[in-house]
Design a protein around this nucleic acid. Structure first.
Lengths: 155, 155
DNA sequence: TACTATTAGTTGCAAGTGAGACTAATATTA
DNA sequence: TAATATTAGTCTCACTTGCAACTAATAGTA
């Protein structure tokens, strides 16, 4: 059931455009935190955050979770290794894959970033009621699921 | 009033992360249309779309509307000029600025893209009720306004 | 077993990017 | 008016990116 029955384009209410603008502005606001103060690029931060949540992942799994290019992930991973924030070791049973884990230092870094990042999100959401927040989450998730379907129609 | 009272980070429900993933996936889905079939980059498409709506703008105004970097806009503009899709002429009263306008050809291109793009959006929104769609728009707009405030606190 | 296909991850390259220096024009101030 | 600041847009440079080609390992097939 189409929710919009229009025939001409108004950018300001065009969903892809809105999403992009928002995402870009949110990203650049947020990355002020981990870029300026912690010298982490966005891809690096994402790798760290994913490892913090799942303790051990390989690059492919990070790709799946983040929709980043695998080369992007690969480069982020090798930077983080050089900086001693994560370690890699060949996965048992498949020696192509490498199991990635945060080092103590990486974990400590993550832990010092998280509260800042959550504060920032709280600021952003300061004027939303809990109900609005729930609706927003729900709608974005729904959009994500729909997108998944369009990307992989067979599934 | 904070809508989220959490102390640890779950990426899958972290708003900036969700917005980014969605925006990226939406962008790449959409740009399949104007990139593959019309040889337009995202910045070029945005310039065109803005000019189609406002008939005459200069680069600065496009920057304001799109939150693109001014160098990005500048490069998109000069490509589009070379391809004869827009024209520039020095603005009356301020000969630093250049008034940009779509050519007939540019406008025709735009008109052939719009329905495709709207179809795509309709597909994306196919499973949303009008109410959900309204809510989504409203919430995203609210987020945008809040962001504006955080970016320019004085205003 | 040999053959082919698939997968994990890296790398080279061409293109795109952001930041800031820069030019030229306009505004502001004294 | 001169001196300074601001603005519009371009350009350069170092960096990032996406894509495709690549290596090495694994899976599937006959």
């Amino acid at each position: 059931m189409a929710a919009t029955g229009r025939t001409d384009l108004k950018l300001q209410t065009f969903l892809p455009y809105m999403l992009n603008n928002l995402a870009e502005r949110v990203s650049s606001g947020l990355s002020g935190i981990y870029a300026d103060e912690y010298q982490l690029s966005i891809p690096e931060w994402r790798v760290i955050a994913n490892l913090a949540e799942h303790s051990t992942l390989n690059a492919r799994q990070i790709v799946e979770r983040t929709t980043m290019e695998k080369s992007k992930v690969s480069r982020a991973v090798s930077n983080l290794c050089e900086r001693g924030l994560i370690t890699q070791k060949r996965a048992e049973g498949d020696s192509r894959a490498k199991d990635l884990t945060l080092t103590e230092e990486g974990l400590a870094l993550y832990r010092s970033i998280v509260p800042r990042v959550l504060d920032w999100e709280r600021e952003l959401l300061a004027e939303m009621s809990p109900g609005e927040y729930r609706d927003l989450m729900h709608l974005l998730q729904k959009l994500g699921a729909r997108l998944q379907l369009l990307e992989y129609p067979e599934t």
